[in-house]
Design a protein around this nucleic acid. Structure first.
Lengths: 352, 352
DNA sequence: GTGCCGCGTCGAATCGATTCGACTAAGGTC
DNA sequence: GACCTTAGTCGAATCGATTCGACGCGGCAC
């Protein structure tokens, strides 16, 4: 198993009797090369088993690696359990893949070491990142690497692909208010990286770092200024179910205290809440109205079509991808904001 | 916005009044450097806004990029919809991430162009890849890049992380046979990249390229040599549902023709089949027994606990990760085969 | 016949760091 | 005091390709 010394372009050139420069031209066809020469180089390459330039060397010289970093804050399993994230990732892959780029998965934590700062990436896209990665982002930017954020806190020099989270949540809250609901509770996405569930209170909200969760809280507060609720660890049906139980089954609580409507910050959470309601013998929307967010298909026959805000996940991803491609090509890219569409499902009804 | 020429190590060295070599040593601490010198270099770096070596140059020199390619054949959205794939990916990320590697997503199609052959990867892991990528894998291997396959067809020089798909399916089939089932049908994973659903027949099976699907078919054939069924487009509940309808509701078919048991090649498919059965008014397991494969939690209250073979997805991923890390360190790595465990759920019963 | 043009090829610089061997000076040993 | 070691630093080669400017040569125009 002795490695027979991997062939280099120089070796091919020598065998073909041309200079390395010519061989290079012959290979990537970017210059005027006589057909005979090209053929000779091809032959030599074949003979030496050379199939294409070393990507490392090429990327040093060209200053491009063809790789875009996808920066996530969670473990992959969590980030990709949410179909909305998958849709966005897919949108990004669509556009950037067509432009010849691949995606590098980077899960950033706090702390000093970091794959982000010394990964050979040409650009980066942040997936709902909180401030813990800000300094690393700054380092990356200083390298001249364009950065696009999806629903990030506005950051200087970062192109943002946004969503009307706040206004959309306000609309949902207004819908509930119109239906006569006055005791309404929130079930939020994770607020920060503490990984703590818990009751929502002003102090907790102050410490929150997740931009999207905060925006959606604020939207709800515009209609219900003193709204409370619980924070979850992320967008899953299970978390929603736990939250649902926490809100609907408060031990010896009187029924009069129970919320008549719940604003869940994602459809998966909403589905979990509805399941919890079922388990407690509550009818949705008879006893409890529930709204979600996202507009993903929840694969659960017990969950009727949700009243929710439908957001264009794939399109958001594509927009991020376009921004990345534009920036890489030296073109301008502007932040864009997508809007979600209200969809009235079968999970909200007039308050009793 | 004029780029002030990104700082290089050489510039830092000059400012600090040392040679580039010393500066390099001072940075990655791999040689004897006087504390004073180190500090001077640090200061200079700070002054110039230099934060770490260019990953491209470093990777050329070192011959390592710290990147492992994850080769998938499907669009991301499809590959990651299956929780089993996510679990494996997570296992890989666990182990390789701890060793300082990141994962590059590569979706390979047939055809000449390919991100795989000129991505700066140190190693690659194949996710259930069919022969269409074989030639590209060979090119990559020739570069001296180690390759690990998860449930791949045995390929020379490729370390395999396998599963007892065939034997496990045989066990499931035997279980059904023991229960007295004689009319049994298969619902398979996708057989190849044709993207065609369809009735399973010998010709179709002959053309199939998906190793795992084939193995599981063969396992079933050991008990039911002439078993038929339908092929799906992949492991989703929806595909299972379609397949279920195709098998259980064959137009004006007599009930006597209907299978009394179905072997689904994944739990998601099984869940879909069960849902189809419900829709047709069939009781599971009363009228129909269904077995799955994988042992993932299906989040559907209508689907009881499945009779299935539980396979260790996360562990398989970790094993693949370990193999990659070992190979990168120049150590040996041997193929491993995992076994799945029979779990009797509530979806199989004695044939009427 | 001279001059100009352009195709095809080549040399050499460059991308930015790492690393090995060599060299210097200081400290320690007998 | 001669000799040896070792810490600290430096020069130069190297990784493998890309690219720019130059150059030779043949053809064409005048």
């Amino acid at each position: 198993m002795t490695e027979p010394v991997r062939a280099t372009l120089a070796a091919v050139a020598k065998l073909a009797g041309v200079s390395p420069s010519t061989a290079s031209l012959a290979f990537n066809g970017s210059g005027p090369v006589a057909e005979a020469t090209r053929e000779r180089v091809r032959q030599a390459a074949l003979e030496l088993g050379y199939d294409g330039p070393d990507p490392r060397a090429r990327s040093l010289r060209r200053g491009r690696s063809g790789i875009i970093g996808v920066v996530l804050e969670e473990a992959l399993r969590e980030a990709f359990r949410d179909p909305m994230n998958l849709a966005m990732l897919d949108g990004i892959a669509d556009v950037t893949g067509a432009a010849g780029n691949s995606l590098l998965l980077l899960t950033e934590s706090a702390g000093p070491g970091s794959a982000l700062v010394d990964a050979p990436i040409d650009a980066a896209v942040l997936f709902g990142c909180s401030p813990v990665v800000d300094d690393k982002v700054r380092i990356v930017q200083k390298r001249g690497i364009p950065v696009v954020a999806i629903e990030g806190r506005p950051l200087p020099g970062v192109v943002d692909v946004g969503l009307d989270s706040r206004e959309a949540t306000r609309a949902l809250a207004a819908h509930l208010h119109d239906l006569g609901h006055r005791r309404v509770a929130l079930v939020t996405l994770e607020l920060d990286r503490d990984r703590h569930r818990g009751v929502l209170n002003p102090a907790r909200i102050d410490r929150a770092t997740s931009f999207t969760a905060l925006e959606r809280i604020r939207g709800a507060q515009e209609v219900y200024p003193s709204i409370g609720g619980v924070a979850t660890l992320g967008s899953t049906i299970d978390e929603g179910r736990l939250a649902g139980h926490a809100l609907l089954d408060p031990g010896a609580g009187e029924a009069a205290e129970r919320p008549t409507a719940i604003i869940a910050q994602s459809d998966l959470l909403a589905a979990g809440v509805i399941r919890a309601a079922h388990e407690l013998g509550l009818d949705v929307p008879g006893d409890l109205s529930v709204v979600g967010f996202d507009g993903v298909r929840v694969d659960d026959p017990l969950v009727p079509e949700l009243t929710t805000m439908v957001q264009p996940g794939l399109e958001k991803g594509r927009a991020a991808g376009r921004a990345l491609v534009d920036l890489l090509a030296g073109r301008e890219a502007r932040s864009v904001a997508f809007t979600s569409a209200f969809r009235r499902g079968a999970t909200t009804a007039r308050a009793r």
